[in-house]
């Protein structure tokens, strides 16, 4: 039987209250929402926070809305809610593609968008999807609010720029006409981490690719993106050849390791092939 070590528990109902509780309990406090990463780690005693701040009732962080030309997703939005949201699917089908293959339906009922990003697992899907979309993260702390590009959000495996005492509150994605997006993943079975996954976002203008975003996960791509492959695409006329070349460049610039899920060279192959497939699907979805 796996039992977490003892901890103090406090429930917040507003962001202000959560920040006050974080300040009171100090560096050894952790925020918990869905808990589907943190609680298993606490059971294994890989994590032993002295205090848990429960933000499940901070309803002000459960919103999905469009504001100022951006899609705003509250940190407490559950995976299932992101998947069910018509406005999300309309503007960013990549997020629906990704959510369909994150964990399983029951876990998706509980796990949150903000929790996944803050857990910062190197094989996590939303980091790649939001990275491809050039989203930004809104972080609140005792001294106010700051906005960080998602491509600067992760500082290493399981590490982010969110400081003790701070709270990720929202993700924002700019909405621009003329584009679409897609996400493809290879996993061994439902609920497992991916061997590799790739997300692509394209914006077309005048028959050319005006902007391209490529996200990769589980293959140690820097900041979960394939910046060199994006360079291949920018300004190019979309074609099978250019998507294949972008895949080759993406594969070359990631750094997968061998583990029980597969050998590094296979994962590198997947990174390239999945990049090409994601680009192809995103392009097919672009308005004509």
């Amino acid at each position: 039987m796996q039992v977490p070590a003892n901890f103090e528990y406090a429930k917040a109902t507003t962001v202000e209250e959560a920040l006050a509780l974080l300040a009171r309990h100090g560096d050894e406090a952790r925020v918990v929402a869905g808990g589907h990463s943190l609680i298993p780690m606490m059971k294994l005693r890989l994590a032993q926070p002295e205090a848990l701040i429960d933000i499940n009732d901070v309803t002000e962080l459960s919103h999905i809305r469009i504001d100022g030309g951006e899609l705003c997703v509250g940190a407490l939005v559950r995976h299932a809610e992101l998947l069910d949201s018509a406005v999300v699917g309309e503007h960013f089908p990549i997020l629906h593609d990704a959510e369909r293959v994150i964990a399983d339906p029951v876990v998706r009922n509980r796990g949150t968008v903000g929790g996944s990003l803050c857990q910062a697992d190197p094989s996590e899907d939303l980091s790649a999807a939001f990275g491809a979309l050039r989203a930004s993260a809104v972080i609140r702390g005792p001294y106010g609010e700051r906005t960080v590009p998602l491509r600067e959000f992760h500082t290493g495996p399981y590490e982010t720029v969110v400081e003790p005492g701070e709270l990720l509150t929202e993700l924002r994605i700019p909405i621009r006409p003329g584009g679409s997006s897609a996400y493809v993943k290879v996993e061994r079975r439902v609920g497992d981490w991916p061997l590799a996954a790739a997300g692509a976002a394209l914006r077309l203008a005048g028959g050319r690719i005006a902007e391209a975003g490529i996200g990769l996960t589980a293959v140690r791509a820097e900041h979960f993106v394939a910046a060199e492959a994006e360079e291949v695409l920018r300004g190019a006329v979309p074609s099978e050849e250019v998507f294949a070349e972008a895949g080759r460049v993406a594969a070359r610039h990631c750094d997968p390791g061998s583990d029980q899920r597969g050998p590094a060279d296979y994962k590198r192959h997947l990174a390239g092939e999945l990049t090409t497939r994601a680009l192809r699907r995103a392009y097919e979805r672009c308005p004509t």
Binding site: G35, H36, D54, P105
Partner: peptide
Amino acid sequence: GVPVKSCTVLAVM
């Protein structure tokens, strides 16, 4: 009203 895995939910929640 939503199915959850109760081994990964604290009773206090």
